[in-house]
Structure formats: structure tokens, C-alpha cells
Amino acid sequence: MKYFAVLLPMKDVAKSKEFRPQHLKFLEEMRNTGKVVANGKFTDGSGGLVIYKAESRQACEALVKEDPYVAGSARKYEIFEWDASWANEYEK
């Protein structure tokens, strides 16, 4: 499995407020299935970050596109494969 840091920059503040409950439920489901390792919002209100665990970038992007924030055009996204040094130590 690989780790991916997904930035979710703000696209539409009103839509972000509208889709927030669905987004949080989605993240909870992803954490419960082990597909999301961590998530949080930026304190300046510019967006947030989600750390996904997936087989490939394509698999990660498929999950990201299911996020109500992305599906509802509230947020843009940027995906970066992440070499998580803490995870490498943990998984040895």
C-alpha cells in the first residue's frame, strides 16, 4: 500500500458549508475501513489535507472523487504520493 497526501483547497465557501456534514461522514467511513489515515482542516480556512492509503494514485483519485466536497464542486484537489517515514517504521 502507498500513502497519498491530498490537498483540498477551497473552491466555494458556501458549498463547503453545505457539504461539510456529508464530507465528515465520508471521512469517518474511510477511516473505519483503513483508507484514510489522517485528516484535518487548515486553520486559515483555505482548505484541508487528507492522508489516504491506497494501492495506486488511480485508486486514491477514485476515492477522492467520491468525497462530497469534490463531487459537489466545493473543493479542488491535488494528490501527492507521500513517503511517510513514520509509516515505514510502523509497518516493518
Rank of each mutant, 00 (worst) to 15 (best):
L63H: 10
Y52C: 01
W82A: 07
M10L: 15
A38Y: 07
E29G: 12
Y77H: 08
G45D: 02
L49Y: 06
F80H: 15
K92P: 07
C60I: 10
Y69C: 02
K2Q: 14
Y52P: 01
E89A: 14
K76L: 09
K35H: 15
R20C: 10
A84M: 11
E28F: 10
D44A: 01
E66S: 14
K41F: 08
A54S: 12
Y52W: 03
A71K: 15
T33L: 04
E91C: 05
E61D: 01
V6P: 01
T43L: 10
K17E: 12
D83K: 15
L63V: 06
D83A: 15
V13A: 15
M10A: 12
G40P: 09
G34K: 12
S16A: 13
F19W: 09
P9C: 02
A71C: 05
N88G: 15
Q22F: 05
L8P: 03
V64N: 02
E89C: 09
E29M: 14
R57Q: 09
T33I: 07
K92N: 14
P9M: 01
I51M: 11
A14K: 14
F4K: 03
E66K: 15
A74Q: 05
N39H: 15
V36F: 10
A87T: 13
A59K: 01
A38R: 10
G47E: 08
Y69R: 04
L49R: 05
K53Q: 12
L7E: 10
F26T: 03
Y77V: 01
D83Y: 13
E28P: 00
K2M: 13
A62N: 10
A71Y: 07
V6M: 00
E78M: 00
A74Y: 03
G48H: 05
F4W: 06
A87Q: 13
A74D: 04
F4I: 03
K25W: 02
K41T: 06
W82R: 06
N32S: 13
G47K: 07
E29A: 15
K65S: 05
D83S: 15
V6N: 00
A38L: 12
G48P: 04
H23F: 14
L7V: 00
K15P: 02
D67F: 12
G40F: 08
G40A: 09
I79F: 03
A62H: 09
K41S: 10
V64C: 03
L63Y: 13
Y77G: 02
D12G: 04
S46E: 13
A38W: 06
P9Q: 05
S56K: 03
E89R: 13
R57G: 03
R20N: 13
V13H: 14
M10H: 09
Q22I: 00
A14H: 10
K53T: 01
V70I: 15
E66F: 11
C60W: 04
D67G: 09
M10G: 07
P9R: 03
Y77S: 01
I51W: 02
R31T: 07
A87E: 14
Y77L: 02
Q22K: 11
G45K: 01
K65W: 07
K15D: 04
K92T: 14
P68N: 08
G48V: 01
S85F: 12
D44H: 06
V37T: 08
K11H: 11
I51R: 04
A54T: 04
D12L: 03
G47T: 06
N39G: 12
K76C: 04
V36E: 07
V36P: 04
K92V: 13
I79Q: 03
A5N: 11
F42V: 05
G40Q: 09
K53E: 09
R75H: 03
A38M: 11
Y52D: 02
